[in-house]
Design a protein around this nucleic acid. Sequence first.
DNA 1: AATGCAAATGAGAATGATTATCGTTCGCGG
DNA 2: CCGCGAACGATAATCATTCTCATTTGCATT
Lengths: 143, 143
Amino acid sequence: MNELEPEHLKSAGLKSTLPRLKVLDLFKNGQERHMSAEDVYQLLRESGDNVGLATVYRVLTQFEQAGLLVRHNFEGGKSVFELNEGTHHDHIVCMQCGHVEEFYDSAIESRQKKIAAELGFTIHEHSLQIYGDCTKTKCPHRR
Amino acid sequence: MNELEPEHLKSAGLKSTLPRLKVLDLFKNGQERHMSAEDVYQLLRESGDNVGLATVYRVLTQFEQAGLLVRHNFEGGKSVFELNEGTHHDHIVCMQCGHVEEFYDSAIESRQKKIAAELGFTIHEHSLQIYGDCTKTKCPHRR
DNA sequence: AATGCAAATGAGAATGATTATCGTTCGCGG
DNA sequence: CCGCGAACGATAATCATTCTCATTTGCATT
């Protein structure tokens, strides 16, 4: 169990409050890498911390804007967040069990840049997800 | 103004009803290629057709399952549909004006297949969007 | 062309995710 | 230790979408 790190919040221009530290700690030291607002809310609740759902949503959005987290809009309507570790990557999601794997492919990245340029766009960000079924042997995850 | 085409519905196993014909006509002969359920609802309403919003949602989903339309989940929480013309492509969306352009890149497609295989996934579908700003000269679209 | 029935529709309620409101509490500089 | 504005928690509100159910319609049959 590592200690909390208020300096990360400070440097992001956010004052160091209990809910923010707890959410950040969940992402840094928790077992789940990809979590929705509801996931975070439940996990905090289970560990005895009484944090409001509205606060969870606020904090996640602030962290995203501060660059601490990255938001993903997978299918299913809910946003999923993960720690921003500087290394961009895309996702492949199992439609059976919800398991998520990350990947990065420089060929895809460079093609995207080229395409955007050809079409006269200044690229801001992109979103690439592959949806499929992971092989039965590794599939038994939760949904 | 082309005539409606009930045989498309027949062959899709859907009986030919007024709402379905109107929605299909909007996609085939309308000016917008990419439309949300709300867009379709408003456009039908403006042209004097009284179609319920629930019906629009139902019909869009049925058309998607029948393979007549393709659904896209762009950022912003709402689904957008377009006519399925057999040619797969991805999208680049202007964050300023909402303008959408389509593109297809075989290099990206093949890389995706390879990645899925390496990670042990059977690929079902994928979703790739690039978000950016289109150059000011072409930007003046509606949002 | 009249009849019957299951499928489809439309209006509005219900749902799920997310955001806004507002009175109370907390972090932190003085 | 005080005070103030930022942050919080509970809850109401909003948005997109789905569900419910009474009514209407497509269409095959007399």
